[in-house]
């Protein structure tokens, strides 16, 4: 297992500060949580470009829309739960529908929210945001990717949502890596099945693939940082010839990455798709390790669950699959 590096929220603050230094159009809006999201770094570097809007998320997003119409490039920084759930109508009507270049950064994304519990854990922000037409949705996996995602979004001419996690996070990419909006990347090759993941969960899925290799299972890992627009070509390519596709995400199994992959593969490829993630329930407080275990997102639990899914597939009777293949013609 890899050693953790700086938290993505720290990278976010550094990258936004640099970008604001280069481009006077960039403004960062904070909903009174800059000390948590990493946004505070921008206040230190460029106080005049750091707009404190207080605890009032729907107002903050609406203000960002206004700023965008007069030529600014606003980044909204607050917790994912409040950015999406509290401000949704501002996002829908003022950002997504007009297609304004506002980037909403959802901090403390996923399960690990500093023990705050279910009110602060949102598991369907990806599902919600990807259901908005015109919205780009991205979940970076590590420090290198986060920096590039933020740089790319500053130049994107349209609305975007990006998840940023709280905890120190291990690295999977090196300096040569090039992030592109809408492109998935194979981060591990394998021939027994394909694991598809996104965000920081990809780092745990890579570890899970290593554990599976020790047990004689060869799993490829496809990292899908952009959940919308999803990389259909890479998904279909990876799925063709695979015996099983398993999506794994630090999100609800309803409507997120798993939903996006299932939608594509249902149309395009003949392969069973299984979805691992949070099982349509709410979260709770607890230490990180305990939460990852209980909600089955640690590398060990993912490896166990994938093995279980594989054995289920293997014990299925072959003729049924053959018949369905014929039916499709």
């Amino acid at each position: 297992m890899r050693l953790p590096g700086p938290a993505l929220r720290q990278v976010l603050g550094e990258t936004l500060s640099e970008l604001a230094g280069k481009d006077p159009k960039i403004v960062v809006l904070d909903g009174d949580v800059g000390s948590s999201t990493g946004g505070a770094a921008v206040e230190t570097a460029h106080p005049e470009r750091y707009l404190q809007t207080g605890i009032g998320e729907q107002n903050m997003v609406a203000m960002a829309a206004g700023l965008a119409t007069v030529g600014f490039v606003p980044f909204i920084t607050t917790f994912a739960c409040f950015a999406v759930a509290r401000a949704l109508d501002s996002i829908r009507v003022l950002v997504a529908q007009p297609g304004l270049p506002v980037t909403i950064v959802g901090g403390y994304a996923g399960l690990l929210t500093g023990m705050t519990g279910k009110t602060h854990q949102i598991f369907n922000d990806v599902a919600i945001m990807r259901s908005l037409a015109s919205m780009t949705v991205i979940a970076p996996a590590d420090q290198i990717e986060t920096r590039q995602v933020i740089e790319r979004l500053a130049a994107l001419d349209g609305p975007a949502y990006v998840q940023i996690t709280r905890e120190p996070s291990s690295a999977i990419f090196d300096e040569d890596y090039r992030f592109e909006v809408g492109r998935a990347v194979t981060v591990r090759h394998g021939h027994d099945l394909v694991l598809i993941s996104t965000g920081v969960q990809t780092t745990r899925v890579v570890d899970a693939a290593e554990l599976l290799a020790e047990r004689g299972v060869s799993a490829a890992v496809l990292h899908c940082p952009t959940i919308k627009p999803i990389d259909e070509t890479s998904l279909v390519e990876a799925a063709l010839g695979a015996e099983l596709v398993v999506t794994v995400e630090e999100q609800s199994v309803l409507g997120g990455l798993g939903g996006a992959v299932a939608e594509v593969l249902a149309d395009k490829a003949l392969v069973p798709v299984k979805r691992l993630g949070i099982q349509d329930c709410y979260g709770e407080s607890g230490p990180n390790e305990a939460l990852l275990e209980k909600y089955r997102l640690s590398a060990a639990r993912v490896a166990d669950d994938v093995e279980q899914l594989l054995s289920t597939i293997h014990s299925r009777n072959e003729p049924a699959i053959e018949r369905s293949r014929l039916d499709d013609d």
Partner: peptide, 11 residues
């Protein structure tokens, strides 16, 4: 307080 499975959740 804040422990997993506790009745005393963070919020």
């Amino acid at each position: 307080f804040d422990a997993i499975n506790s009745r005393l959740q963070g919020h």
